[in-house]
């Protein structure tokens, strides 16, 4: 499975760095279909991409090179700093709490929580908070369970209603055409009469 992921992301990175290799084949494809392109939409010289409709250019390869050069320059500056000593393995900052476990890390749920709260009205997340108290005293909390479930807004608001409409349409169609040849002949007769009446 990882090989597939690596291969696909490799293709993405290659295309991001050198989209110019695809410019010419895409251009040929658009010129074959008539009425889409008047002239070449993209001009390229291998490094730069230039849109022909409006004045806009881009060179992902040079951008990546520039980024790499700047990173190497920054690294050189840091390496030249007076102290080269690096102490590894110190505990992370816990605001005075020295023991930190993996349970204190941000999870995907907690990471997305602020954004989910912002888009509350759109996403309609279902939130459950269960608090268990100690039997001795209600003041002490034994455990808290927090569950957050977000239904896919597109699926529930768009795809499922669309599918329901399509299914109703199909049910109606099935009732109209049930495979009886007599019924089809009757339909053609009625259609013929209507056409004759209209075109009279």
């Amino acid at each position: 499975m990882q090989a597939g992921l690596v291969a696909l992301s490799g293709v993405c990175v290659a295309l991001a760095l050198a989209p110019t290799v695809l410019a010419e084949p895409l251009e040929r494809a658009t010129t074959v279909v008539s009425g889409i392109a008047d002239g070449a939409p993209i001009t390229t010289d291998g490094v730069y991409l230039q849109l022909s409709g409006i004045q806009a250019g881009l060179s992902p390869l040079l951008l990546a090179t520039g980024l790499a050069v700047m990173m190497i320059a920054a690294l050189a500056v840091v390496r030249r700093s007076r102290v080269r000593r690096t102490t590894r393995g110190i505990p992370a900052w816990g605001c005075g709490r020295t023991v930190q476990t993996a349970r204190m890390e941000y999870t995907a749920t907690s990471f997305a929580e602020p954004l989910q709260r912002v888009f509350d009205d759109v996403l309609h997340p279902e939130i459950d908070v269960d608090v268990d108290h100690h039997t001795e005293s209600r003041h002490y909390v034994q455990a808290i369970r927090y569950r957050l479930h977000t239904r896919d807004a597109f699926e529930h608001r768009l795809y499922l209603p669309l599918l329901a409409v399509a299914r109703r349409w199909g049910d109606g169609a099935r009732r109209i055409q049930n495979g009886s040849i007599h019924r089809y002949l009757a339909y053609s007769l009625f259609t013929l009469i209507i056409v004759l009446l209209v075109s009279r």
């Binding site: 816990g94 890390e105 941000y106 990471f111 602020p114």
Partner: peptide, 14 residues
């Protein structure tokens, strides 16, 4: 993996 780093990252991304 600290709580504060995650908090800052989450807020910044929001």
């Amino acid at each position: 993996g600290t709580a504060f780093g995650g908090m800052g990252a989450s807020r910044a991304m929001t």
